[in-house]
Design a protein around this nucleic acid. Sequence first.
DNA 1: ATGAAAGCGCTAACAA
DNA 2: TTGTTAGCGCTTTCAT
Lengths: 329, 329
Amino acid sequence: MRNDSRATIVDVAALAGVHAGTVSRALSRPDKVAPATRERVEAAVKELGFVPSRAARGLITGKTGYVGVIVPDITNPYFAVLVRSIEHAARDADFQVLLVDTGERSDEEVRAVRGLAREVDGFIVLSPRRLHREVDAIGETPAVFVNRQVRGRASVLLRSASAAEEALRHLAALGHTKITYLRGPQGSWAATERRDAVRRTSRASGVEVVEIAGCAPTFEGGQDAVERAATNGSSAVIAFNDQMALGVLAGLTRRGIRVPEEMSIVGCDDVPVAAMVAPPLTTIRMPTDEAGAVAVELLADSTAKVELFGSLVVRASTGPVGARSQPIR
Amino acid sequence: MRNDSRATIVDVAALAGVHAGTVSRALSRPDKVAPATRERVEAAVKELGFVPSRAARGLITGKTGYVGVIVPDITNPYFAVLVRSIEHAARDADFQVLLVDTGERSDEEVRAVRGLAREVDGFIVLSPRRLHREVDAIGETPAVFVNRQVRGRASVLLRSASAAEEALRHLAALGHTKITYLRGPQGSWAATERRDAVRRTSRASGVEVVEIAGCAPTFEGGQDAVERAATNGSSAVIAFNDQMALGVLAGLTRRGIRVPEEMSIVGCDDVPVAAMVAPPLTTIRMPTDEAGAVAVELLADSTAKVELFGSLVVRASTGPVGARSQPIR
DNA sequence: ATGAAAGCGCTAACAA
DNA sequence: TTGTTAGCGCTTTCAT
């Protein structure tokens, strides 16, 4: 093909010896056009390397072919994995992904949505920090919220409650009777769900849970919590997410406390690196690939609510209660 | 504001009591319009929450306001960091990012570029796997290649050569006389540059370098190389990137070989997790934030070539040659 | 089955 | 300084 990426539908029409309208039809509803004509059109399209302009098409159809994906921080591996699955599902559905990284700045969510509302067919919003409280900014545009429920809007929820219970039972079975739970950020849907699950199971399983709050859901946050976790008499830590768990692991290692012999660790999300540290992290795996695909589907069904469930992956960071039975120092 | 995201320029014009053309001017060249008119228009814009349609505007100006970012794998932290910096720089320059994750499939690069050439003002291509050999697919559209030089196209190169030399000298100063270099993928620009630098410095500094090739530039690739690296008599490993270095670290740890006492490790890229493992990785930091900003700038200057330089960050995975002076086993 | 014509929302010449 | 007009590339009636 000549691969003239500037060719328009009129060029194609001319080459095929038909009118532009016919080309349009041949492309969108091939059955509405005579076989011979269709072939001539297809040949011309190929010859010129013609690709219809989404902009021009969208102007008249009202469909742009774009989906806006709003994410707090693409360098957070949890979000990166989600974005990848969304991107692939979107492509399969003939959407292009418009990526917005808000840099964890909640006002950017609102700004971005205001600016984009007209040029996307829908939004997929990952773990919104504020947008769920200012949904009006989205207007009529379809939107799917991931890990946040919003009245009248579609959502896909990655539920970790039952897996968190699994984790607690796993630790109980290993002989742990007192564990530390590192809470996630206030106001986070996932954090609330997970904390509640831990509390509930704690009572049921007879494991005493010491909660630590106020730490950032990051590597540093995990490190900050190590001091307390190591001296409160618990023999295991469940962290809100893998980043924190990694922080705990690093902090413990630096203090010379062995994992899992002296202290067990459970993370959450099963981020890629969770399997790459020593010892590999026991964690809760979330069906993120599926989540992306579902989110894209829900764009078309704008009020549905889908729940997906995580499950425990046992690796080497958890083990039986060891020699150390009392607080260090 | 009424925040009617469906308002058009005509609605604004009506509300302001002027013609649509005047609104257009008031928005794009405010100085070309009477102050009083401008104020009325601005008020109307605010009142209606009017946001001009990029599609309609682009149709006539030929500028779409989109930049296509093509990345092999967004879950690779190195690319994630780059994409974030590109996204932020793009926003500052009033561009929206169209993200394409090729899933490491080189034919997707070409497909994506063909499909998007008309709807973006330019492409930023990160570490292309094939596109650099099929540049014609891009046509007239401006393109900036990151970590790849292409004739007649702009590029930003993250040079690691001098930092790699630094790394070797750093190890030499610690007493290492024989080290292993884990090579990157064949055909990668970065891999070639780094390998050449290591070879060159090897001769100059009197450090013997054993190269290992054929491993994937991943965590697993690093793990696979551990066996050989641990038994070839070297006391340090320089890996093509942090992922591999992480794999080496994990493999070494599992074998009970202590880092850095028995074996030193140097990575490359200074990916976020590099600082989060135990021991934190000595690595080569790349100015990725700057790279993103530069790449966006180069969209406007489509043949420039910019080079940015990495530098060694010494952490705890490197240390003086220890007791172990001969191969294990 | 195909052509003709109108129009999506906007900008840019040109007039006034 | 502002209004008028044409038209970007496409789809979609409505005729034919």
